[in-house]
């Protein structure tokens, strides 16, 4: 499959995530859109790793080029799991204080 198709798919998913962050006010939906963007990047990393692996396999039969990209995706997932736990705790605390998950309530920080 041409690499361009994967790039277009990942870019579209990433842009949908960005539009979600820009247009919604619900903090949980914004958080989910951030997860969507992370997954788009993960998909692109795996596609590129397979692309480089395919190029290297032509000369060397059992080449391991591109394995670090897949490990990078693994570490992105690890960091995303940690980020979600802390972020959801922050959202719960915010709901407990303001009884709302509207991000516009957070503009009181500026005073």
């Amino acid at each position: 499959m041409p690499i361009q198709y994967y790039i277009y798919l990942a870019l579209t998913l990433f842009t949908i995530g960005i539009i979600g962050v820009l247009t919604r006010r619900n903090a949980i939906i914004i958080f989910m859109c951030i997860e969507l963007m992370l997954n788009a990047v993960n998909l692109l990393l795996v596609a590129f790793s397979k692309m480089h692996n395919g190029i290297a396999l032509v000369t060397n039969k059992d080449s391991m080029v591109g394995i670090d990209a897949q490990l990078f995706v693994f570490f992105i997932m690890v960091v995303a799991a940690a980020e979600v736990s802390v972020g959801l705790a922050i959202i719960v605390m915010m709901y407990r204080n303001t009884h709302s998950i509207d991000v516009n309530f957070l503009n009181r920080l500026k005073n």
Partner: peptide, 17 residues
């Protein structure tokens, strides 16, 4: 003219990773 390798290649297997 670059393609992502589908269905083959063994870098994604759990042993190598």
């Amino acid at each position: 003219n670059k393609t992502a390798l589908l269905k083959t290649g063994n870098i994604g297997l759990i042993g190598n990773l």
